[in-house]
Design a protein around this nucleic acid. Structure first.
Length: 552
RNA sequence: GCCCCCGUAGCUCAGCUGGAUAGAGCGCCGGCCUUCUAAGCCGGAUGUCGCAGGUUCGAAUCCUGCCGGGGGCGCCA
């Protein structure tokens, strides 16, 4: 069951008491006063079943041990305090099970909740200490188009960025372009081979796009023997096309950071020199090593090869040092599962920079398997046997792709059945959520067309329907859900939340007539509820980079 | 050998900083459009939460050990 908003000093409603925080405050205050423990944070959640009331708290159970009293006995006294505090907003309380306090709220509480939501009660309060965060994601080699797997990285990196921004952080996003090293030489050689009608080298790139690059190189007058030029131009074209794919997917990177530029601007040298000065390096066998084992890595790592050339790791250390130089205090790298062995050494490298207050975390995204024709598609960029992000978007569209790629926990490998994604596109869960939004907009259009009041709602005497209660409870969860998803870097929670809101709305739609609802102020109140629901769905989807169509 | 992720309904997966009778989607069976969008709703069937111990008033959730699946352990990137 979703949690209600935590009390937050920065979110007092302008227009009277906010029912949600009022409820939580009442329970928390009662628990703290009764136990004398000011750090107590009792739970307050929507009850799993109607007979268990509207909200439930474990307050009595968490303090019974320290008080040395049976939980149900404590619960009885606690509920008296809560009842006194909430007055008419509370119908009654019940003690249930091992000592839960079940709260049965008055209709008035729900009516006020709608008003509060409409007045901005949905707003997500900013975190107490906003951070300057750099999210690095995708960073796929610029030797080929983005794959569907890269799509998971792009969607995830983008969604956590939106979540962190929504909770008040300052976030920049970057794509690290590995435009140096032997892979680029192979890439250039592959283009050159295609220009002369030859097969690419053994460890070269064989995708069709390489022939396209060869044609383009020819058209621009680059010769097959000008490998350096081919490398630069080829990478440039690939980055251009990668950026286009990302934008098509709704992902706009704040920057593309070139590995090569690290060398050209002397940053690699500088970064490594700094580590050397800090005394965390040593020379052995002609190579320069970083003592990452002093900071938790299982062995030391080479920064500069015996031939004098920095390793990939050396350059990446310099890149991360540069991130710190630019003032970011929290670095988040979104990496593939195959890079998990890399975490310890980079974490160690950052510690060896001796810059306190810098946090570094790696989000490992597990692999994604594309299933086609009942078997896994190969995902080798070199062989060119890949499903590209563009092809995925052609198949199922950006919204569905986003939802599919985000709805699973990131630390889980996922099977994405392309045949299924295509054939069931109209059964896709994202349409379920979007449809609720479209339905709402349809009602609001109709209401506006007949000049009905959608805004201010007069108090009504009509009983609040159970489906309205359930919907309101979900809507009140929004700020807490966003904070939870952001702090755990878990956008899949928002997928689940959006689905819950949509389900609650569909049930409300079934049970409650909106336009023409009889009873004083009832229609206006329900129109208000529709409006707030639509906005909540739209905001939730926006956090995932998914659109909320007005018509379907 | 060491490290990381996973094991929950027929399938794909939520839930896992401990709470009441473990959930969703898809699939399956049966119902609902003369009123606001049926891309919807309602009802039904299906579970040793991998196994075994432990901690706790209470374990899918925390600890330990196994079993099974996947990934990683370069002076590659």
């Amino acid at each position: 069951m979703a949690r209600m908003s935590e009390p937050d000093p920065s979110s007092p409603g302008q227009s009277g008491p906010d029912p949600a925080s009022g409820l939580r405050d009442a329970v928390t205050a009662a628990a703290r006063n009764f136990s004398g423990d000011q750090s107590l944070r009792p739970s307050l959640e929507s009850s799993p079943r109607p007979e268990m009331g509207d909200y439930s708290s474990n307050a009595a159970m968490v303090m019974s041990k320290s008080l040395g009293r049976p939980p149900r006995e404590v619960a009885a006294e606690l509920s008296a305090l809560i009842e006194a505090d909430l007055g008419d907003l509370l119908d009654r309380t019940e003690i249930a099970g091992p000592g839960f306090i079940n709260l049965f709220l008055a209709d008035e509480w729900y009516r006020r909740a709608i008003t509060s939501l409409a007045d901005g009660g949905w707003k997500v309060p900013p975190v107490e200490r906003p951070e300057r965060i750099l999210v690095e994601s995708v960073s796929a080699n610029p030797t080929g188009p983005l794959t569907a797997a890269s799509g998971r990285h792009a969607a995830h990196g983008d969604a956590i960025t939106r979540l962190l921004r929504a909770t008040g952080h300052e976030v920049s996003t970057e794509y690290y372009v590995n435009d140096g090293g032997t892979q680029i030489e192979n890439f250039a050689a592959s283009i050159a081979a295609r220009m002369t009608g030859a097969e690419p080298p053994e460890d070269g790139y064989r995708g069709e796009y390489v022939s396209g690059l060869a044609d383009r190189a020819g058209a621009e007058g680059i010769g097959p023997d000008e490998l350096e030029l081919l490398a630069r131009a080829g990478v440039g074209w690939m980055v251009e096309s990668i950026r286009a794919s990302l934008i098509r997917f709704g992902v706009e990177m704040d920057g593309f950071f070139s590995e090569r530029s690290l060398y050209e601007e002397g940053l690699v040298e500088r970064g490594i020199e700094r580590l050397r000065e800090a005394g965390h390096t040593f020379e052995q066998d002609g190579a320069l090593w970083l003592r990452t084992s002093e900071f938790g890595d299982d062995k030391d790592r080479v920064l500069v090869r015996s031939g004098g050339e920095p390793t990939y790791f050396g350059a990446d250390v310099a890149y991360h040092a540069d991130k710190v130089e630019r003032g970011f205090t929290r670095l988040i790298d979104v990496l593939g599962a195959d890079h998990h062995g890399y975490i310890a050494r980079m974490a160690a490298a950052i510690q060896s920079m001796e810059r306190p207050g810098i946090s570094f975390e790696v989000q490992i995204l597990q692999m994604i398997h594309l299933i086609e024709g009942g078997r896994r598609t190969k995902m080798s960029k070199r062989a060119g046997d890949i499903v590209t992000l563009d092809e995925l978007l052609d198949d199922i569209g950006s919204d569905a792709a986003r939802f599919f790629l985000l709805q699973r926990s990131s630390d889980r490998t996922m099977d994405l059945d392309l045949d299924l994604a295509r054939s069931q596109s109209s059964e896709n869960p994202v349409y379920y959520v979007q449809y609720a939004h479209a339905r709402i907009q349809s009602i609001l259009r109709k209401a506006a067309g007949s000049g009905r009041e959608c805004g201010s709602d007069g108090p009504t005497r009509v009983a609040v329907d159970p489906s309205e209660k359930a919907l309101i409870e979900r809507l009140l969860d929004y700020p807490a859900e966003v904070h939870e998803a952001a702090s755990r870097l878990a956008p899949h929670r928002i997928c689940a939340y959006a689905t819950e809101v949509a389900a609650a709305y569909h049930a409300f739609y079934r049970d409650c007539q909106v336009i023409g609802a009889e009873g004083e102020g009832l229609e206006a109140s329900r129109l208000n509820l529709c409006r707030v629901t639509g906005e909540t769905i739209k905001r939730s989807l926006a956090l995932l980079g998914i659109s909320a169509p007005d018509r379907m």
